[in-house]
């Protein structure tokens, strides 16, 4: 897909989202869902870059999100670092962690990368709940409860000021999405795709697998860390519950629904998944079962997600005319 087409789809999606407060701005519940959609849209897109474009089966995206959230929360609560600075520092710290996790993955094939990165995910909960986490300021099993909101020019962006906070989240999501768009359409993106398709051919043509694989880990964990940190300041509290499987699976569903390697499909996937999940809320305990069944049907009918389906349709349309 050309970058112009990707940009156009992103523009349409974010444009529609931007005008939604005109119609539902006074319905607090919907505004909160939209903010969460925007946050997951970025996390799912980052996961798509590393898995769909670079072909690295990293299962560490939720871990990086939590690392970013806790790092910023600890900086802000324990060391009184201003929220904006804490978010940036959290992003950089998470990028460093991403590189550290990426290093052992360089020599591993797909399933083993998934194991190593999911291992990081699994070790994070006991680490944050245990003595080391408590010493660092994670709050143990209670978590961090008093994370200050982002304050810019004396204005606090919190759930109490939902409309301005929505637009700040939108600005963050658009910025992260534009960064992803630029990267995957630059020579970095070409290197990611070449390494995914045939690593031995790519390296024989001068691409450094070491450099570009670590770059993709650094970039996606930086953006995920920043968004995780932002999430912590928006919600105001953090707990290790985020590391349970619900969020991990939901994010994976977003990716599958949008289409793996079909950016900006992950953005669409986030909005569709969160919306359907909320619409199914009246089903109570049957919600998870219904959602699972819908995902199975969707994967069978649209193996490349909604974006893959749409691209196929538009290509078929162009061929027939």
């Amino acid at each position: 897909m050309s970058w112009q087409r990707m940009a156009a789809i992103m523009g349409v999606v974010y444009g529609i989202v931007a005008i939604l407060p005109l119609f539902v701005g006074d319905i607090r519940f919907i505004m909160q869902i939209l903010i969460i959609c925007l946050i997951w849209a970025v996390v799912a897109s980052c996961w798509d870059v590393i898995m769909g474009f670079a072909g690295i089966f990293s299962f560490g995206q939720v871990a990086f999100f939590v690392i970013g959230a806790y790092t910023s929360g600890i900086f802000a609560v324990s060391w009184q670092v201003p929220a904006v600075l804490a978010i940036l520092m959290a992003g950089l710290f998470t990028a460093g962690m991403g590189v550290l996790v990426g290093l052992p993955c360089l020599k591993l094939a797909g399933p083993y990368v998934a194991l190593v990165t999911f291992g990081v995910h699994m070790t994070l909960m006991p680490l944050l709940r245990g003595d080391i986490g408590i010493a660092l300021g994670s709050g143990g099993s209670v978590g961090i409860l008093t994370i200050p909101p982002i304050t810019l020019f004396g204005y606090a962006f919190s759930s109490a000021n939902i409309i301005p906070t929505f637009y700040l989240t939108l600005a963050l999501a658009v910025t992260c999405s534009v960064v992803i768009l630029v990267v995957i359409n630059s020579y970095w993106g070409t290197a990611f795709l070449a390494l995914k398709d045939s690593e031995e051919f790519a390296v024989s043509l001068g691409i450094s697998a070491f450099k570009y694989k670590l770059m993709v880990f650094a970039l996606t964990s930086f953006l995920t860390g920043v968004v995780g940190a932002y999430y912590g300041h928006y919600i105001g509290m953090l707990s290790t519950r985020m590391l349970e499987l619900d969020l991990f699976v939901t994010l994976m569903v977003m990716l599958v629904v949008g289409g793996i390697g079909k950016f900006p499909g992950a953005i669409l996937g986030a909005f569709i998944t969160v919306t359907v999940n909320e619409l199914l809320a009246p089903l109570g305990s049957y919600r998870a079962v219904t959602m699972g069944a819908l995902v199975v049907i969707l994967v069978l009918l649209l193996p490349n997600g909604v974006m893959g389906f749409w691209l196929r349709r538009s290509k078929a349309g162009a061929t027939s005319t």
Binding site: Y187, L193, D197, S198, E200, F201, S204, L205, I207
Partner: peptide, 28 residues
């Protein structure tokens, strides 16, 4: 030093022009 492979290697995600471009951008 450049090489080809016994089993043809390609980049299915890229076009022919982009694939040849990979060699010039990264290898030259």
């Amino acid at each position: 030093i450049a090489r080809t492979f016994q089993i043809p290697q390609t980049f299915p995600s890229l076009t022919v022009e982009q694939s040849v471009g990979v060699g010039n951008r990264f290898g030259a």
